[in-house]
Design a binder for these strands. Sequence first.
DNA 1: CGGCGTTTTGAGAGAGCTCAACATCGGTGG
DNA 2: CCACCGATGTTGAGCTCTCTCAAAACGCCG
Lengths: 217, 217
Amino acid sequence: MGARNGAGREVRSVNKVAGDDWIPAALQRAGMKRALKAGETLFRSGMRTAGLYQVAHGRVRLARVDRRGREAVLYVASAGDIIAEASLFSPVYHCDAIATTDATVRLYPKAAILAAFKRDPKAMQAFTAMLAHQVMNLRARLEQHSIHSARDRVRHYLNLNAGADGRTVPLTGTLKNLASELGLTHEALYRTLAAMAKAGEIARGKGFIRLSGRPSL
Amino acid sequence: MGARNGAGREVRSVNKVAGDDWIPAALQRAGMKRALKAGETLFRSGMRTAGLYQVAHGRVRLARVDRRGREAVLYVASAGDIIAEASLFSPVYHCDAIATTDATVRLYPKAAILAAFKRDPKAMQAFTAMLAHQVMNLRARLEQHSIHSARDRVRHYLNLNAGADGRTVPLTGTLKNLASELGLTHEALYRTLAAMAKAGEIARGKGFIRLSGRPSL
DNA sequence: CGGCGTTTTGAGAGAGCTCAACATCGGTGG
DNA sequence: CCACCGATGTTGAGCTCTCTCAAAACGCCG
């Protein structure tokens, strides 16, 4: 989990959908950076919504705390992730956001965003489209997690993420990263990949995996 | 997986976010029903997008087919679910939609929706807000699936879905349904609930579960 | 009452998790 | 240049936990 990367370099989650394309240029400049120490609170449930955040580096977890004081994690956001999208349409936050590691986030103020959307409907459309893609992507990942066999789960991932040639899958992060995205331990993933490679089902390369089944059969 | 429902009666997924509130009244009327036989195709990857669909009853699966002809399921939609939201912003579909059971869907034509959004920005905002909530909800479920212990996963679910009193969790569907949403077999869920009840952690009632831990501790 | 699906309990086996040790790679500093 | 260090990558062995298969009780509806 707490996977800081080797040299502090941050790698985007493998399946990240949110490009920054949806952010109107005017907003880019309105984004205000804020640094968080590990354990520091970004916002709490019930606080007035300031806007939505984008994690620049580090990890921020969204959680809800029940009355027994136990914390239920809703989501762990890492570099590139947008959190509190729904805050645009709500007066208060509905969960807590706490930095899990030292982190920096960029705040896009609600008022600025909504104003930009009003000025430029295209911007809102881009935002909506981005959300729609995220929904798709998240659904796919959820479906993935319902597959119990590690091998089938990896197959599912590879098939969905094959590049244009239908055979080559780029690996954008570390395998450990991929493992946690797939909901597997890294050991299980290593073993599965090794087995698939030995069986000739895949070929592994630096930064990619190639499906070796005949593509047109 | 293929959890068909008992008597053909359809139960909405427990965690369904999509109310119909986002649908402008004018659109409600524009919705065109279509009946599908089990196995029938609603749309295929590459087809021009007609609009988005809402499943009225039955099940429709979204899948992508790789070049080896194998199908990778992206999502299984059931009553109430909206599919192909992203089609609003794309000229062609990017996956196949096939009825898994006999089903009926309602088509909301793209042009009508976009027109409604242009006429009434509030409508688009409602749609966007709905998507944002779905993203939140899906992320939470994804997090849930990353918990390996059945008991902890159930706890997570109960904590997140506790009602206003923080203790009572309504059960909207069957337990079997809940099991598949949690990514557990129904047997595992039954056993886990039984164990938790025996341990005094929860009390079970008809249509609800009550967390029996002292709420303020 | 009889059929059907859900709910429940049992027993067994397999798969992934856990713990552990080691290899590898890239960056750092003496 | 090489030793060191931290993190990733890899492999091994045992164990727990869930899944699978099976069977039975319960509840609902015609």
